[in-house]
């Protein structure tokens, strides 16, 4: 593997470790030495990759957003899918992530939304989640353009969609749901579709 390739791999493993620790212990209680220790690296070396805990936190949200955005992009590009089918697939992707990588969702809820003070400067407002937001915007505007979704303010549609999914992921994380999360996919798709359709 090339030097560059190794560096990218290392970066990803730091992000993965930090993601886990941040989502379990929260932003303030997690320290750079904790993260370094978890992957058998010196703190000094870790600083070569991320100059501060804040920047690392920002990189994580970018990384998470890009992973999710990439999945939705694949759905958006399937031009033949109906909007209903697209919603179904987005719900599937989200729930799959909530089940397989709960730390990503946890991170988003516990760190990104709870510590807005960390996400300033180069990570203001939507900058670090642009990868994900852009795809959701395209999904919405395509849905309106083909006449299946009702035209409305972006945030009123976005809040309904993502708030609902986030809420279900949270309930699942708290082990409150009576059935496995995946089994809710059809109903939730139907509810979202009903709420947003023309």
């Amino acid at each position: 593997m090339s030097q560059g390739g190794k560096r990218v791999q290392k970066k990803e493993s730091i992000i993965q470790a930090a993601l886990t620790l941040f989502s379990v212990y929260g932003f303030h209680k997690t320290t750079i030495p904790n993260i370094a220790k978890r992957i058998g690296m010196s703190s000094g070396n870790l600083y070569n990759y991320f100059p501060s805990k804040e920047i690392l936190a920002q990189e994580i949200i970018k990384y998470t957003s890009e992973v999710l955005g990439e999945e939705i992009r694949k759905i958006n590009q399937q031009k033949k899918l109906t909007t209903y089918k697209k919603i179904h697939k987005i719900v599937e992707v989200y729930f799959k992530m909530a089940i397989e990588k709960p730390e990503m969702i946890e991170y988003f809820l516990r760190v990104y939304l709870s510590h807005r003070e960390v996400f300033v400067g180069e990570c203001q407002r939507m900058v670090c989640v642009a990868g994900f937001i852009t795809e959701i915007m395209i999904f919405f505007s395509d849905g309106v353009e083909c006449g299946e979704l009702r035209d409305q303010d972006f945030f009123s549609a976005f809040g309904l969609f993502m708030g609902y999914l986030g809420g279900m992921a949270f309930l699942n994380g708290e082990a409150i749901l009576s059935r496995p999360l995946k089994e809710y996919t059809d109903d939730i798709t139907q509810n979202i579709y009903n709420a947003l359709k023309t």
Binding site: M137, Q152, D153
Partner: peptide, 27 residues
């Protein structure tokens, strides 16, 4: 369309436009 301009600048893909727009709007 859901708050997003329906017509894009000539030759600019919607994805490219929204990416740049989202970032610019954040500051």
């Amino acid at each position: 369309l859901m708050g997003i301009p329906a017509s894009m600048p000539i030759g600019i893909p919607k994805r490219a436009y929204l990416t740049i727009a989202g970032i610019a709007k954040s500051f």
